[in-house]
């Protein structure tokens, strides 16, 4: 049985490295992005193999899903900006004097000149081999699992990963939520939002399916959030699923962007971080240490924080997809 697993591992790793190599070596950006999404899905498979279902869920939803969507929309924006032409309106192309279609040229990165090949290759090989030799020398010791297991009962949740995320190392998770928010602030500081440069798909198919899929996505998201306390799941995965549903909605009506109300959007975005900080400060004042939960209150608080976090993450991911600050911010 062990042999089969080793063969599977080797095949999976070979696949991963192969896809990654093709992705980085491809000259056409669209091909690179598609390969990157497959890389993300294969990665999710690898995390399942390493008995990390939460991470597999997150990788599939965030790593492959959301990142893939962001990349594709960025390509479309680059195509519009650089080539001045939108892929679904060929007639709008101004006469393009510079050889092959500028659109093609825009999303085409010529293979780099061979001059830097050797130094870069040797540097990467040196780094890689040093890493591998170091890893081979490392002892095969179990990590902090026994320690976590010993404190599980005091953590208020049954699932170890949620316990670590929201109780033992709550500070890291808080900062992680903060980073997502900061990334959005950074994106908003760059400019006001513009509509997704695409025409709505004609025909009833997409709206119809969305009417079916979006409610299911919302239910799944809530289920994943709720399940997080005792089995793989949690705020980030749920947030990603809801975010994906939001992005689908945005894609279905690219022109009629619903202008989000300023304060409500801000409150939604800040809910996760705000609530987490409020409970943390309360913990500090009540003497349980910053980000500590009063005994007995940890389960309800964790659930409350997770709900707020899911809402915030979903909103932030959709806002990052739109990548521009709402007009409301610019009114004096």
């Amino acid at each position: 049985m062990n042999l089969l697993l080793v063969v599977f591992d080797l095949a999976l790793l070979a696949g991963l490295i192969g896809v990654a190599w093709r992705c980085l070596a491809s000259t056409d950006l669209f091909r690179a992005v598609v390969l990157f999404i497959t890389f993300g899905l294969l990665l999710a498979l690898a995390w399942v193999r390493l008995e990390a279902p939460d991470i597999a869920l997150a990788e599939a939803a965030i790593g492959a899903g959301i990142t893939g969507a962001l990349l594709l929309v960025t390509l479309e924006r680059l195509r519009v900006i650089i080539a001045g032409r939108r892929s679904d309106r060929p007639d709008t192309v101004p006469p393009d004097p510079s050889g092959p279609g500028a659109a093609l040229q825009a999303l085409h990165d010529p293979p780099p000149e061979p001059r830097t090949r050797l130094p870069a290759l040797t540097f990467a090989l040196v780094v890689g081999s040093l890493l591998v030799t170091t890893l081979w020398h490392q002892p095969d010791a179990a990590g902090l699992e026994p320690v976590v297991d010993a404190h599980m009962d005091a953590s208020g949740v049954d699932h170890p990963i949620t316990a670590v995320l929201l109780n033992f190392r709550a500070y890291d998770t808080f900062l992680e939520l903060a980073i997502v928010l900061v990334a959005l602030l950074g994106a908003w500081s760059l400019g006001r939002h513009d509509r997704i440069p695409a025409r709505p798909a004609p025909g009833p198919i997409l709206p119809g399916t969305l009417r079916l899929l979006v409610p299911v996505a919302v239910v799944t998201g809530v289920y994943v959030l709720w399940a997080g306390s005792h089995q793989p799941g949690g705020a980030f995965q749920a947030g990603a699923i809801l975010g994906a549903a939001g992005i689908l909605l945005v894609l279905s009506r690219p022109r009629r962007m619903p202008p989000p109300p300023g304060t409500l959007l801000r409150l939604g975005l800040g809910a996760g971080v705000g609530l987490f900080l409020a409970s943390g400060v309360y913990g500090l004042l009540a003497g349980h240490g910053f980000l500590g939960y009063p005994p007995g209150w940890d389960y309800p608080l964790i659930i409350l924080i997770e709900v707020a976090a899911t809402l915030s993450i979903a909103l932030t991911l959709v806002a990052l997809f739109i990548a521009g600050r709402p007009e409301g911010d610019d009114r004096p």
Binding site: A201, G203, I205, L206, T209, L212, L213
Partner: peptide, 10 residues
């Protein structure tokens, strides 16, 4: 099934 068909259609 639903996702596959919609994607193929698009």
């Amino acid at each position: 099934l639903a996702a596959g068909t919609t994607a193929a259609h698009m």
